[in-house]
Amino acid sequence: MPSQQDSGYRSDPWSNGNQPPPDLDKLISDGINRVKKSLPGGGGGSAGNILVILLVFLLGVGVWTSLFTVPSDSVAVVQRFGKYVKEIPPGLHFKFPLGIDKATIVPVKRQLKQEFGFATPGSTDPFQSGRGTNGQLETQMVTGDLNAALVEWVVQYRIADPVKFLFEVREPSETLRYVSESVMREVVGDRTVDEVITIGRQEIESEALVKMQALAVKYVMGISIDQVQLKNINPPRPVQESFNEVNQAQQEKEKLINEALRDYNKVIPLAEGEKDQRIREADGYRLKRINEAEGDAARFNALLSEYQKAPEVTRRRIYIETMQEVLPTIKSKIIIDEQTRGLLPFLNLTSESGAKP
């Protein structure tokens, strides 16, 4: 039956009662001595030391070249003696050392970009921006109306198929630059300089994206193009000042046209409304006069019909109705009997208020 000391040793290999842990350097030196004794020559010597050092060096190199780490946004494409073997997901992995296996890290989840006409400082991708004077030459384009323009743009893409990206096309990133420049020159060459600089930017981006995607599939580059975005578009520097003056004049023209349209939209609807109001008023007055005339004619015909039935009664009624309308408008009234033969006129010497003048 094992003692308590033995059980403690098994649970903790470095605790054997009160004894200290073993010396690792001593263990390694003992192991090297055993290897030396097992080599030809027995006790070692210079040849044995060289072999031991060589074995240790080869072991370290083997371990160092067999371990590799794949980042979280990438995959590793493994080749064995140059032949494709497999893809490895992110994490810590092993491969055959000493150049037998080669692992190429491909960032499949990272959005890459290529810049044309400018360069972002600190970029590590050699194909992200143009090299030397090519970065300026690739922006010089001729539009459809034979004008020159400096076009800067950005292509954003991802690596969709790592195997095709590595093995189907030589230098796929550089090929993408050539494809992008060719497509952009074609699209810009189909439009006038005014469309390129002002109103046609969105159409150019959409058409260039479609054509670049089609060529990427045709050339089997293993690339998925996500976006094409135009940046600065300017005329060449020798004519830039004149072009700015033309643009300023164009903007002033548009401003005056907009102001004239604003005044037109303000005055014309008001005049149209007044015209419609006058027409409706005249139409209403016309209908009123017609209805009044027709009513008077109908009233006269009705009176005529009644008059023909009883002339004396109708005449007297008309007289009374007329007097009812006239008498209230007369301030002073003198009523006399028709049988009176003598009437002495008198002068009213009092004012309207009844006081003497």
Rank of each mutant, 00 (worst) to 15 (best):
I334V: 15
N49T: 12
I257W: 02
R158F: 02
Q227A: 09
G122I: 08
D25S: 15
W153S: 00
T133L: 06
A282F: 08
E325G: 06
V106M: 01
M184F: 07
I105D: 03
R237K: 11
F243S: 09
I105R: 00
T133C: 00
K102I: 05
W64L: 08
S72D: 10
V77R: 01
Q248V: 07
K333V: 15
N258L: 11
F57W: 12
K231M: 09
R289E: 14
D101K: 00
Y319D: 05
K231I: 01
L270E: 15
K83A: 15
P311Q: 10
P238V: 09
P238N: 13
L287Y: 08
A271W: 07
P21V: 05
L112R: 08
R317P: 03
Q308W: 03
K86Q: 14
L137I: 06
S66H: 02
G62A: 11
S15L: 10
I204S: 01
N16K: 13
R341T: 15
V267G: 01
L327H: 00
P71E: 05
H93V: 04
E292T: 11
V56W: 04
P328S: 06
G42L: 07
I268Q: 07
I53W: 09
R177T: 05
A298G: 01
N49Q: 13
P20H: 07
G99V: 03
F57P: 04
E195P: 01
H93E: 02
P107L: 01
I105T: 09
V246S: 11
V326L: 11
G295N: 09
P89R: 11
M323R: 01
I257C: 00
M221T: 14
R280S: 13
I204P: 00
F167T: 14
L51D: 04
F81P: 03
I257V: 13
R289H: 13
G189P: 09
L256F: 07
G284M: 06
P107K: 02
N244L: 10
Q277D: 12
E312S: 09
T120G: 05
L54K: 08
N16L: 06
G45D: 03
A271S: 05
V313K: 15
E241P: 04
R278V: 15
A148K: 11
V75N: 08
Y178W: 10
R185N: 04
V78G: 08
P172V: 07
L347Y: 13
T340S: 11
G342S: 12
P90M: 04
G122K: 02
T124A: 06
L67N: 05
G43D: 12
P40Q: 09
K253N: 11
T198I: 10
E325N: 08
N147Q: 15
M323G: 01
G48K: 09
E325V: 05
F165D: 06
E352T: 13
P357N: 12
I100K: 00
S3I: 04
K333D: 03
I334C: 08
E292L: 12
V142H: 03
V217R: 14
S351V: 02
Q19C: 01
E245V: 07
W14N: 13
R316T: 09
K109T: 02
V187P: 01
R341C: 02
Q156T: 15
E325C: 00
K275P: 00
E207I: 12
P107H: 05
